[in-house]
């Protein structure tokens, strides 16, 4: 699934947070706040929440830092979740074969993200970790 690079987003918020129990609730609140500025309906916001939760469930529970970059381009909401290290997830998300299984993943992350999002794609970050860029239109 291709991701179109969006030009000149209106708002950009970046969160740097240590992995661990409180990271996810903080991310959800931040996403909720940004969604309210962009009139994103609740069910679409919840899909984004679930996509982020799905990715984090495949990650180690501690060690290192996660980043969350939120932007609100016209008519949509973009989330870049960075600092991910599960290479099995990365391989599944960039695979050409839609039905390729995801060894090393708890669930089929590709299937879930395909269903929840309007678009998503993998972004290489620092050679070790990677990010997943996710987009959801407001309507």
């Amino acid at each position: 699934m291709a991701v179109t690079r969006l030009s000149a987003p209106h708002d950009i918020v970046t969160l740097h947070i240590a992995r661990g129990g409180s990271a996810l609730p903080v991310m959800r609140v931040l996403m909720g706040g940004m969604a309210s500025r962009n009139d994103l309906p609740l069910d679409r916001l919840d899909d984004l929440h679930l996509a982020v939760e799905t990715l984090l469930a495949e990650e180690p529970e501690s060690g290192g830092e996660l980043t969350l970059e939120l932007s609100t381009p016209a008519g949509g909401f973009r989330v870049l979740l960075g600092g991910l290290v599960n290479q099995s997830v990365k391989a599944a998300l960039v695979a050409d074969d839609l039905f390729k299984p995801c060894p090393g993943c708890l669930l089929d992350v590709r299937l879930i993200l395909d269903s929840l999002l309007d678009s998503h794609g993998v972004v290489d970050m620092d050679g070790v970790s990677f990010g997943v860029e996710m987009e959801k239109r407001a309507s």
Partner: peptide, 23 residues
């Protein structure tokens, strides 16, 4: 599905409170 702003208007609270309550 309603937006957070619409929920805030309907419940007469701020958008921040809606986000917090949902969480």
């Amino acid at each position: 599905s309603p937006t957070i702003a619409e929920l805030a208007a309907a419940t007469e609270v701020s958008e921040e409170e809606v986000v917090e309550a949902l969480e």
